[in-house]
């Protein structure tokens, strides 16, 4: 048994872990039950707000974990030292014997299981990152830097993509370049540059890491919505650079057609950030003269507040329930 300051720290960590689990479950249920409504709501936001909402959604279990453990902490007798102590009441969420942490109790098991799970996900994602970096290094050997904007790969495979986490780079193959006119080429490069400027590969990786803590299906939905939002933002920056919406849209379709005709019997080159991912939606979004403009509204904070209350009471109830059954 761990007693004292470390006991308090481990108990707070246990509270955070339980909150993360409850929040992941609650958000997943919310998305599963109201998938269409949630997607419709998210689509109604302008692109930047949409991105922020997605980041908030995917990181909220961790934020709630932090806030919940802090709120529990102020009910601990040890917080008296800094004048924050709130007298625990049986009606309000509270935590018994916060200075004692039994490693063999359900708290200890929850913390240990969570750590194993988190380490497994971190390892998997870190491995992916290292492997990706290695392959990019190999690709650099076969590419030639044209200017500060992009590297040209001598290959018939038509492709344009951006990769690299710390120093992202855009790549374009000669196979694609040779089939585009000057304006189309400028559009493709401007799109890829937008990904470079906003460090999208790194952000996508971080987002995937957080989404990996959700059930597979929910993680996939979150990843695909975020990925599509990043594509739309890159398309938006091409328009902001002075290109007409319809020309950007027709370039998208042209690149998709080139890709499809290159290897009609195999999977098209999905990898290119330029032309993959719900092409139709992107074209329709580009042609839409009334794009979604909803901004952040304070009422949206109601959802995390409700989740926080749910987490607080769930941690407390779960605690009592399990301790009634297991007697610690």
């Amino acid at each position: 048994m761990i007693v004292g300051q470390w006991g308090v720290i481990l108990n707070l960590f246990a509270i955070a872990v339980i909150t993360v689990g409850i929040s992941v479950l609650a958000i997943s249920l919310l998305i599963s039950l109201f998938r269409k409504k949630v997607q419709k709501k998210i689509s109604s936001f302008n692109l930047k707000t949409r991105k922020s909402v997605l980041w908030f959604l995917v990181s909220s279990p961790w934020l709630l974990g932090l806030v919940t453990s802090l709120l529990f902490w102020i009910t601990f007798p040890t917080s008296v030292n800094i004048g924050l102590n709130v007298t625990p009441s049986t009606l309000l969420p509270h935590w018994h014997h916060p200075e004692l942490f039994e490693l063999t109790s359900w708290h200890g098991v929850s913390v240990a299981l969570f750590l194993v799970w988190a380490m497994f996900i971190t390892y998997k994602k870190a491995y992916l990152l290292i492997e990706n970096k290695k392959v990019q290094a190999s690709l650099n050997v076969f590419s030639e830097k044209q200017d500060k904007n992009f590297c040209l790969i001598e290959s018939a495979t038509p492709n344009a993509f951006t990769c690299g986490f710390i120093e992202p780079k855009s790549y374009l193959t000669t196979g694609l370049k040779s089939q585009l006119n000057e304006e189309e080429l400028a559009i493709v490069l401007a799109h890829e540059q937008a990904h470079v400027k906003s460090f999208d590969p790194l952000k996508k990786w971080l987002f995937m890491m957080l989404a990996a803590f959700f059930p597979n299906r929910i993680g996939q939905i979150l990843n695909s919505v975020m990925s599509q939002t990043m594509e739309l933002l890159a398309d938006q920056s091409v328009i902001d650079a002075g290109h007409h919406n319809d020309v950007v849209a027709s370039t998208l379709v042209k690149v998709a057609r080139i890709s499809m005709r290159f290897q009609p019997n195999t999977t098209p080159i999905l990898s290119s950030y330029f032309h993959v991912e719900a092409l139709e939606e992107r074209v329709k979004w580009l042609l839409d003269d009334k794009p979604a403009t909803a901004n952040f509204h304070y009422s949206m904070l109601l959802v995390p507040c409700l989740l926080l209350v749910l987490a607080m009471f769930s941690v407390d109830s779960l605690h009592h329930l399990i301790e009634t059954i297991l007697n610690h």
Binding site: S155, Q220, I269, S271
Partner: peptide
């Protein structure tokens, strides 16, 4: 090229690629 881009999606999320491929 395929490795540098599709590996980025990761093995466990291959269905993510599949979801998009079912469109494109």
């Amino acid at each position: 090229i395929e490795d540098v881009t599709s590996d980025f999606v990761g093995n466990s999320e291959h269905s993510l690629v599949a979801a998009f491929s079912s469109v494109s």
